[in-house]
Design a binder for these strands. Sequence first.
DNA 1: CCCATATCGTTGATATTGTCAATCGTTTCT
DNA 2: AGAAACGATTGACAATATCAACGATATGGG
Lengths: 158, 158
Amino acid sequence: MAPMPKPADAVASSPGSRPSALSDDLSFLLARANAISLAAGNAALAAHGLKARSYSVLLLTTDEARPSQRELAEYLRLDPSQVVSLVDDLQSRGLVERRPDPADRRANVVVATDAGRQLAAAARETARMAEEQVHGQLTREERHTLTALLRVLAFPET
Amino acid sequence: MAPMPKPADAVASSPGSRPSALSDDLSFLLARANAISLAAGNAALAAHGLKARSYSVLLLTTDEARPSQRELAEYLRLDPSQVVSLVDDLQSRGLVERRPDPADRRANVVVATDAGRQLAAAARETARMAEEQVHGQLTREERHTLTALLRVLAFPET
DNA sequence: CCCATATCGTTGATATTGTCAATCGTTTCT
DNA sequence: AGAAACGATTGACAATATCAACGATATGGG
């Protein structure tokens, strides 16, 4: 059982093939991998009239947690005003509803409608397949490792 | 020697603490981790009058590989027209030069000036420290693993 | 209880970034 | 040589990000 995946390295010096200045920079790799993943996701979700953004909002509103807009903004790292637009759009399509938070009348709880849940389920399937293609080079175990490591960066303790 | 880092999972059901719908979605974690990393990088690099974008361009032009603008665009996943703007900016500040590619008169090779190299070195230090803060939760070995895995996603074979 | 202060959602203005088509000069293919 | 492809550039436009301000509530201290 190999602890270190070690996927085909030895990138040392194919001359001129790939600039090396950033090739081991975690931030850069993060940016590039994200760009690729995002492009694939958007392309796939377009079939449902969604983008990565609207998809993630929709999916979160199917959750038990019943997030408020502020919570959505924080979780997705968006400005609250962007969440307004996203929810406006989803709501206008009948996929989502704004409900007053009984505990705090300033806040809106956003919750998916039946249609929203239905679309979310379909889109989730599509997204899953798109990811499969993007992450296909990794074994299941590698993906688990990657997920765990990314979670540390994505949700820092301090 | 623990093969799997396994950083504090069991996120099963702390009620209301964190929406779970996306918490194990690789694409989402990628996006969020990148957003955090990018924000930290931009904040740090601002001290040098740079952003993540301009920094990465500048850094690549200090490389031996002497990238053309097209190569920069491809590597950074930018539209060629965006590279024009970035190089324009750096050039107007005397950090970078456009040189005709002797092998192809259509192409420009972009190369850092002495001032550019000097700034790049300083900025690199700054960036390194900023990353240290972002990735501080990971051990050195975990970072290596993460880098290797991300490289597979960032530079797919097929 | 009342006031000062903070929060949530919203709007609007503005900047930054992303995307696309068209063009010029050059290269490549046949 | 001529046709097609390519690199850089420009310009137009869409999408996204960032910020300040506001009305409606909440909250905490006096």
